[in-house]
Write a protein that binds this DNA or RNA. Structure first.
Lengths: 153, 153
DNA sequence: CTGATAGTTGAAGTCAACTTCAAGTCAAGC
DNA sequence: GCTTGACTTGAAGTTGACTTCAACTATCAG
């Protein structure tokens, strides 16, 4: 293993938990940057790991990659981001998570009142209201992540 | 408008909130059934609306269509499902929603402790841990529905 | 009977976030 | 210098849940 302060794709993949293909994909999407060796191979700065931690956290919260990219674009260039920078970016997530939790809680409570009667009426039952949570999703979007649902498949 | 007790695709679409294309898709997936006119057009029984209400509710909870199909397959055939039938099917959802809410709550609380320090360390911060919620999703699956995220895009 | 409106089909497209593939090139330890 | 393992690329494939399209056909009010 080399002793430079630059990391190879494999090293970054191993340390971050992202697949190499994901790292290359993120680079194409403008979320990451890497210098190249004379032979064309990627070499990453060590701070890419924090950036990737941010990306994973943002994805956990439910941000799409383009939103993550937009957030990352607000980081000051020319200097390494500080803790305050990262903190600022993730501050708004709390509200977002609150909303998500509230929506799911409403859904659960609606279910509580529906289980008893078994109605599932399209008109009266808030639980299956088209205007509720699941409606008007864009094409192709799954509702909840597999990781949240896989345990009780 | 006809006065039969059978519904056209358009009527079902309007009453259920599903697009006609979604109804045809569900039929191909075995979630719905329709009789046909002599001319080949679909005609739906009135109880298809309750079935669709169930489908929407299940989707709201986060079930995939194949899971919904499996659940619907446990309905007794030969008779119209009763309220008890529907109630039985949706009873397990409560637990599932509880888990989803708990996972998001853990995530939010992890965020709370991370906001202060801005660490986002891959090693120490539970919030961005690869093994946490967002990790190991299958390809193509979005984390949260647009409906939950669109307001505070 | 006619014309407007609504319905039919299979095939292909969409979206997000990646993964997989084939065919080849680089880096480094011995 | 050679071998081995890691790396490179663009293109195409995957998944789930639909939507869109083009080219027709059916239904029904008047």
């Amino acid at each position: 293993m080399r002793t430079t302060d630059l990391l190879t794709v494999g090293e970054v993949a191993h340390r971050s938990g992202f697949a190499p293909s994901a790292l290359r994909f993120y680079e194409r999407q403008g979320l990451l940057h890497a210098t190249r060796t004379s032979g064309g191979q990627r070499r990453y700065q060590r701070n890419v790991l924090r950036r990737l931690a941010f990306i994973r956290a943002a994805r956990n919260v439910g941000l799409r990659l383009d939103e993550v990219a937009a957030a990352l674009a607000t980081l000051p260039d020319g200097r390494t981001p500080t803790k305050d920078d990262w903190s600022r970016l993730s501050r708004s997530w709390r509200h977002r998570l609150d909303d998500e939790i509230a929506a799911l809680t409403r859904l659960r409570d609606g279910l509580e009142s529906c289980i008893g009667c078994g109605c599932l009426s399209l008109r009266t039952c808030a639980f299956s209201n088209p205007d509720d949570i699941g409606a008007k999703r864009g094409p192709g979007a799954a509702f909840l992540p597999a990781a949240l649902t896989k345990d009780r498949g």
